[in-house]
């Protein structure tokens, strides 16, 4: 557990130096976004990629689970549930191509 925390904090530090960027974990419910970067240290990178969580994918934050840290994201027409810890590894830009 401690190892993971260390990794997360180091990622965030890196991010801060790059300027304020939003991650999937912070996306408000009901808004859309596009993935612009996937953190290199993410666990299960391939698993996420296989369901369409890749750079350029458009997302819709559908809901937060009651209690706990699950979020529900619509990607490629499918609702996927994942943890906020993992979601924090996806850097996003709010809005989608269509909207712009």
């Amino acid at each position: 557990m401690t190892e993971k925390k260390k990794c997360c904090s180091s990622c965030c530090c890196q991010e801060e130096s790059l300027g304020k960027q939003m991650t999937l974990a912070e996306l408000p419910v009901g808004t859309t976004a596009t993935i612009v970067k996937v953190m290199p240290k993410i666990r299960g990178r391939k698993k996420f990629a296989d369901v369409g969580l890749v750079v350029g994918s458009e997302l819709l934050m559908e809901a937060h689970a009651p209690l706990g840290s699950l979020i529900r994201v619509k990607v490629m027409e499918t609702s996927m549930a994942l943890h906020k810890d993992d979601a924090a590894n996806f850097v996003i830009e709010q809005g989608t191509r269509d909207e712009k």
Binding site: R43, K47, M80, A81, D86
Partner: peptide, 11 residues
């Protein structure tokens, strides 16, 4: 350990 990544479809 951390185990598997949690990723579940809501069909």
């Amino acid at each position: 350990g951390d185990g598997e990544v949690y990723l579940m479809e809501l069909p």
